[in-house]
Amino acid sequence: MVKRNHRSAYLLILPYLLFLGVFLIYPILFSVWLTFHDWNIVSTDIPFVGLENYKRLMEDELFFTSLWNTVRFILINIPLQIVLALLLAVALNQPIKGRGFFRGAYFLPVVTSGVVISFLWAWMLSTDGGIINEVLGRIGIPPVPWLTSETWAIPSLAWVAAWKNLGYYVVIFLAGLQGIPKNLYEAARMDGASPVQNFFRITLPMLNPAMLLVVILSTINGFQLFTEPFIMTGGGPANSSLSVVMYIYKNAFQSLDMGYAATIGLVLALIILTVSLLQKRFLERDTYY
């Protein structure tokens, strides 16, 4: 029996491993190889350039601009997401009617394509004629160039991404809230604690693991920012919303600079991996989740 298990087990896993090898392991090695070469994908002559691509990266202002844009995006996106998701999750956690409906409504943008959401919000945020500015105009606020100014482009994108993912994080927080033992609150009530005190002394600390999960997931997500700026701003104005992934795309498909594009991809992956590893360490320290 055990022997039989052996052979069929390998056979069962083989197709998946084939995929893994061809479309994951090989590309990773290929990617590393590419970073040491200069290739436009067409020419048969592929010169080895050593660390040239890495050197260029370190001196490339535009790369750092795109990195800074992405980091700015994350720094605005995360707090926005956490505060709103927490607010909605706490409200949903009350004994109320229609919880399923509300939760379902919040989740709607999560399942919808980023393409849909980007166009929808690009339209709502357009400076002239967009609904947001029209409504603001009614209360006397002059039109804000949401997507066409250096100041507002990244915050606007951060808001749109938060809007898209909020429902997802509401569900995570809700699961976290429901896992908090009720007797903690009862004990606190005996001591005469106010609901606000309860929230900061019990709820928030108990939600720590969920919070970390949300932070890490949105960080990883944030570094992969592409669809929203690609559609809503094209990376502008003046590269103020160019994301790292857009910059990879640009190098690869506007300049056919595959070696350099792969180099940026590798560096970005290392940044993301470092963040994920930090996540793992944080999460493993807490066995709650």
Binding site: P27, S31, L34, F223
Partner: peptide
């Protein structure tokens, strides 16, 4: 492994 590492290869 983020997709961005794989997209070019």
């Amino acid at each position: 492994i983020p997709f961005q590492l794989l997209m070019i290869p």
